[in-house]
Design a protein around this nucleic acid. Sequence first.
DNA 1: TTGACACCAGGAATGGTTCCTATTAATTTG
DNA 2: CAAATTAATAGGAACCATTCCTGGTGTCAA
Lengths: 134, 134
Amino acid sequence: MAITKLRRNTPQRRVILEELCLLKSHPTAAELYAIVRKRLPRISLGTVYRNLEVLHEDGVIDKMEFAGAESRFDGNTELHYHVRCTECGRIEDIFPLDWEQTPAQPAELAGFQVTGYRLEYFGICPDCRIRLAH
Amino acid sequence: MAITKLRRNTPQRRVILEELCLLKSHPTAAELYAIVRKRLPRISLGTVYRNLEVLHEDGVIDKMEFAGAESRFDGNTELHYHVRCTECGRIEDIFPLDWEQTPAQPAELAGFQVTGYRLEYFGICPDCRIRLAH
DNA sequence: TTGACACCAGGAATGGTTCCTATTAATTTG
DNA sequence: CAAATTAATAGGAACCATTCCTGGTGTCAA
Ligand SMILES: [Mn+2]
Ligand SMILES: [Mn+2]
Ligand SMILES: [Zn+2]
Ligand SMILES: [Zn+2]
């Protein structure tokens, strides 16, 4: 039933995924672009965006979108959560093991057919805490 | 210690807050602009944005930001959560009473000083479910 | 009065992301 | 392999919600 769209295995897509998975950080498209360019100097930023989107569609990577801040990408698709620094945008992993409960996901809420949820913590990262204290 | 900034009680700010609080919906700045213009025809969209920001800073209203979608505002600052329709952007309230647990908020995670968290559900609203089924 | 300044309307600028178009190249078919 | 098909690319323009800028206005206090 679900027609799987043909994906070509381009060098650009391959390198983008490789470099993302090497990182423990959660880079923006622009940051990843800078890294990928070392191996593919002629790649365009649009290609990075398009492939990150495609990889996300296919469930190969995670995409985290924020208002007013650049989206960030995660090569680790294990179930985990994040803390985001409201000062510099840095993101760190929080694995469910680290604390007790995970939120319930009801099938229906207020008449909505619930397809997912998003839980994210925000705060100040160690570096920014030091920096802000002069 | 915390220097409270002087706020002037302008008609624009008053009307924006009044109209927002009358609504059970969670309007965008543009939607609220259209409503407020009926009472203040010469108000500018920039003024609506500025005042919504100010009111949010002062904790008088809630602001919900989404990537790729307009921010929405909430005159109800009681603790509650939201379901957002991924098709039309509509938002409905979910009060903690409606279901069991609320997420824990640790004071520190991964070295971050945690200042808050965000939990939001997304799905398909009743209207869009009907519409999508032809 | 006069100064200080929060605030306004109008409009330009911003910037991350998406879209457009001609071209390239991965994959399939014969 | 050669040819046909068409997904994907580079480059750059467009998008658009939001913010910023500017000149001006209303208000309060000294
Ligand atoms: Mn992660
Ligand atoms: Mn609400
Ligand atoms: Zn930080
Ligand atoms: Zn809907």
